[in-house]
């Protein structure tokens, strides 16, 4: 097969043509790699979701609190509002980068995003403190273990994303919105929106599903 198809080429098999100065497209490669990382991460979340779903049985409540006893909508709704708004403000930061609106605007929107992320984390921690106070600790039952496996995992991701945001803000403040910053911001944006999607899953499965 290979023998026949080469007949149409001047050089059989391989040739050394003048090397066109091709751009190495580092940003594109990094973005591809990051997509793969997120797919991998998504499987981790998927398995924690699956474990949580299998733990929604009386056996796994082990006589302890059930979702109905624990979850209430207002708190979760506030967390959702904070996180969804932060994804919108990150979008504004991305637009500011895209249309070269200047370092100030980019930094400003990133700061708002960071603040909203902090609000989200604060609300989440408040919820956990409350749960601990009423004895709904992970050691209590399989169900609570799976809750504290899933939801704080998302929280840890938001924390990591927030640290990344701070690093990006330092970098942009020092060096401006250069190509490296643009490439990294694109990945951070992807990550931040990804965490939003995970949260929507948590909101639907854990909180809405728990109250229903």
């Amino acid at each position: 097969m290979s023998g026949n198809s080469t007949a149409i080429y001047a050089a059989p098999g391989l040739s050394f043509e003048a090397e066109e100065h091709h751009d190495h497209d580092h940003a594109g490669k990094a973005l591809s790699g990051f997509w793969l990382f997120m797919m991998s991460d998504l499987i981790i979340f998927g398995l924690f979701f699956a474990t949580y779903a299998t733990m929604l049985t009386p056996m796994s409540y082990a006589g302890g609190p059930t979702p109905k006893d624990l979850f209430e909508l207002p708190g979760a709704a506030m967390e959702t509002a904070a996180l969804l708004t932060s994804t919108l403000t990150f979008g504004f930061a991305s637009l500011a980068v895209k249309y070269d609106m200047g370092r100030g605007k980019v930094l400003g929107w990133l700061a708002v995003t960071l603040a909203l992320g902090m609000v989200f984390l604060g609300l989440e921690i408040r919820e956990f403190v409350h749960m601990f106070a009423i004895g709904a600790v992970p050691e209590r039952s399989g169900f609570l273990s799976s809750f504290f496996g899933l939801v704080p995992l998302h929280g840890a991701h938001v924390t990591a994303g927030s640290i990344w945001l701070i690093i990006m803000m330092i970098q942009i403040a020092r060096k401006g919105v250069d190509e490296t910053a643009k490439s990294r911001l694109a990945r951070l944006a992807l990550f931040w929106h990804f965490l939003d999607i995970i949260w929507i899953g948590i909101f639907s499965v854990v909180y809405l599903g728990g109250i229903a």
Binding site: M1, S2, G3, S5, T6, Y9, A11, P12, G13, L14, S15, F16, E17, E19
Partner: peptide, 19 residues
Amino acid sequence: VIPHIHAREAFAVAKEAGM
């Protein structure tokens, strides 16, 4: 120099052609 590839098993094809 990065080679340009024109065939599967490119090196074997090139060798067959004496290149």
